[in-house]
């Protein structure tokens, strides 16, 4: 009996080996992959054409003019810190390949650059900018995240594009400001000239001087008429207060100085007007706020808390 089962298990093992050898000796049927390859080529070609068509469209819209814009953009912070393997990541790799330089502005500081085409770029506190040493190719492209002010040099043959996460600003004319401080919102203010903002969802807006466009989650949320001076004060180290709540101001100061500034809820709703000089240290900025709004200041470790 014992012997019998021993033989059976030996035989079973032998069959295992034979079955494995049989499976090893056999191969699935050969197949012709030419149809798959032509499908792949077709799909890639179609995508490239769509991209090109979009680019060509923008270029035609651009022809002839140059702008000054302020752009504030924040979604891109994540893009630039890297990590995610997605297309925007690939774009960054391409950017590095193309010999771009990265500028990161320290908290509370500003940086001014003159790009190779003569464009003047001012970047606010905690902003990241990627720009090439020399522009070459059909367009002049820079990447910005945070707050930048640009006075774009005229060169109709080479459109100037500011790319931020979720949208592009195509310069048709001269001076503008881009802000992008929170994760999902951004705004573009045109000082003079003409720009076109294209979002990743393909919303497209042409701005006239004094126009401000707000973007939320890659879509245009509103278009308004503003005094550009209010949005470009930071260039001179000033912050304009137009009736924002104190809690909004605390957030702005936190963004600017990189120091956590909190505000007690009761105090947070107080509206503030005026101008702050951000050349000053955070301590003296806070004491100027105290002159308008009476409050107590408490320091807890790295945090500054405003209370009434």
């Amino acid at each position: 009996m014992d012997n019998q089962s021993h033989i059976t298990s030996q035989e079973s093992q032998r069959q295992d080996v034979r079955l494995e050898s049989l499976l090893d000796a056999c191969r699935p049927e050969e197949f012709d992959n030419s149809r798959i390859k032509s499908l792949v080529r077709g799909k890639l070609m179609r995508e490239a054409m769509i991209r090109q068509r979009r680019r060509r469209h923008l270029i035609t819209a651009v022809a002839g003019i140059a702008a000054c814009v302020c752009i504030v953009a924040g979604v891109a912070l994540r893009l630039f810190s890297g990590g995610d393997v997605d297309l925007s990541h690939a774009t960054l790799a391409e950017v590095e390949e193309a010999g771009y330089t990265e500028l990161v502005v320290a908290p509370g500081k500003r940086a001014e650059l003159t790009l190779s085409d003569g464009t003047r770029l001012i970047a606010n506190s905690r902003t990241r900018v990627l720009y090439p040493e020399h522009f070459d190719g059909a367009e002049r492209r820079v990447y910005a995240n945070g707050e930048v002010y640009l006075e774009v040099a005229k060169d109709a043959a080479h459109p100037f594009v500011v790319e931020s996460n979720g949208f592009d600003v195509k310069v048709l004319g001269t001076v503008f400001n881009i802000t992008n401080t929170s994760d999902s919102t951004a705004s573009v203010v045109l000082v003079e000239g003409s720009v076109e903002v294209t979002t990743e969802r393909d919303d497209r807006v042409r701005l006239k001087p004094c126009d401000m466009v707000d973007l939320v989650n890659g879509e245009v949320s509103s278009l308004s008429h503003v005094d550009p001076a209010d949005y470009t004060l930071w260039i001179d180290g000033l912050m304009s207060l137009r009736g924002e709540s104190l809690s909004t101001l605390a957030q702005k100061l936190t963004d600017h100085y990189g120091v956590a500034i909190e505000c007690a809820p009761a105090l947070g709703r107080v509206k503030v007007y005026g101008k702050l000089d951000l050349h000053d240290s955070i301590e003296s900025v806070i004491s100027s706020i105290r002159e308008i709004v009476p409050m107590e200041i408490e320091r807890k470790g790295d945090r500054i808390i405003m209370r009434n």
Binding site: R35, I36, V40, L44, E47, V85, A90, A93
Partner: peptide, 21 residues
């Protein structure tokens, strides 16, 4: 099946920068 496999290759090509990872 051909549609699926061509989509796989299109994705690989589009994300080629990350292939080494």
């Amino acid at each position: 099946a051909e549609e699926v496999v061509s989509d796989v290759f299109v994705e690989i090509w589009k994300n080629r920068k990350g292939l080494l990872e």
